[in-house]
């Protein structure tokens, strides 16, 4: 077998990852960052392997996932019903859109001081931040989706004397599906980021706080190992959500 054939069988993401690590290694050994405190790729990877053997790392991973996950679930449970209600009425849509757009663009960092006052540097604080960061955008996204329903479909249902609740359940919600899916994809990524920021800046438990602690302790190989770990988590979350979406919103797969 030729070596080219072997290369073709390797998934592209492995190749690009290896290339990136190699570039990192070169930059940190002989390249522009050789004199800095940035660890080499091999140091970071070794630190990661070492840390994965420690229970504390897994606890931090769990805390971050919990914070991001619970915040995400709460935000979804609030945003979708609220979005549907707003989307049903033109008046409600126009009058809430401004407020929601306003809250949507406030970076969660801005309210960290207030949340620390209320919750302290805790899991609850992180969850609250995550909810705050994603609930408005997701509600608006849902409202847009509900409004995007094909009028022909609604009129057909009305002709067959289907009530408003059935119109919502069978026509409006599924129509909003692709919109909600986009919102959820963005929300899941944001949830993870905010859960880390909550620890990094607000002192909430999890990988964010570990980042802060290792950095303060001068263990830059571990800091970078955590960054690697977060990257892997992010990819897994986005893959998982993509997988679920292809199954739930199967009819748009063309």
């Amino acid at each position: 077998m030729h070596s080219v054939d072997v290369l073709r069988r390797v998934p592209p993401w492995i190749i690009s990852t290896l290339v990136a690590l190699l570039v990192w290694q070169l930059v940190a050994t002989v390249g522009p960052a050789a004199e800095s405190s940035i660890p080499t790729a091999s140091e970071a990877v070794l630190a990661l392997v070492r840390m994965l053997g420690e229970g504390a790392t897994w606890l931090a991973v769990w805390e971050t996932i919990q914070m991001a996950g619970l915040g995400f679930i709460i935000a979804v449970l609030i945003a979708i019903p609220v979005g549907v209600l707003i989307g049903l009425s033109s008046f409600a849509f126009r009058s809430t859109k401004f407020t929601f757009d306003f809250f949507k663009v406030i970076p969660p960092i801005v309210i960290i001081p207030i949340t620390i006052l209320v919750f302290g540097p805790s899991l609850q604080m992180g969850i609250f931040l995550v909810v705050f960061a994603i609930v408005f955008a997701l509600a608006i996204q849902t409202a847009y989706g509900v409004r995007d329903v094909d009028p022909v479909l609604l009129e057909t249902m009305r002709c067959y004397r289907q009530g408003v609740l059935r119109q919502i359940w069978y026509a409006r919600l599924p129509s909003a599906g692709p919109f909600i899916a986009v919102g959820i994809r963005i929300a899941a990524a944001a949830a993870l980021i905010v859960a880390v920021v909550a620890g990094l800046i607000g002192g909430a438990p999890g990988l964010g706080r570990e980042l802060l602690l290792t950095q303060a302790g001068g263990q830059s190989d571990q800091t970078f190992a955590i960054v690697l770990l977060l990257g892997i988590l992010g990819v897994l979350v986005s893959r998982g959500i993509g997988w679920a979406q292809r199954r739930v919103i199967f009819w748009t797969a063309s």
């Binding site: 479909l153 009305r158 002709c159 067959y160 004397r161 069978y170 199967f250 009819w251």
Partner: peptide, 22 residues
């Protein structure tokens, strides 16, 4: 004052009157 009982409809745009998710 609304769609009467016993009414059925068939519209030109069949791609838009059947639900793709059912």
């Amino acid at each position: 004052s609304g769609p009467p009982k016993g009414l059925a409809v068939v519209l030109q745009d069949y791609t838009r009157s059947l639900m793709p998710w059912l």
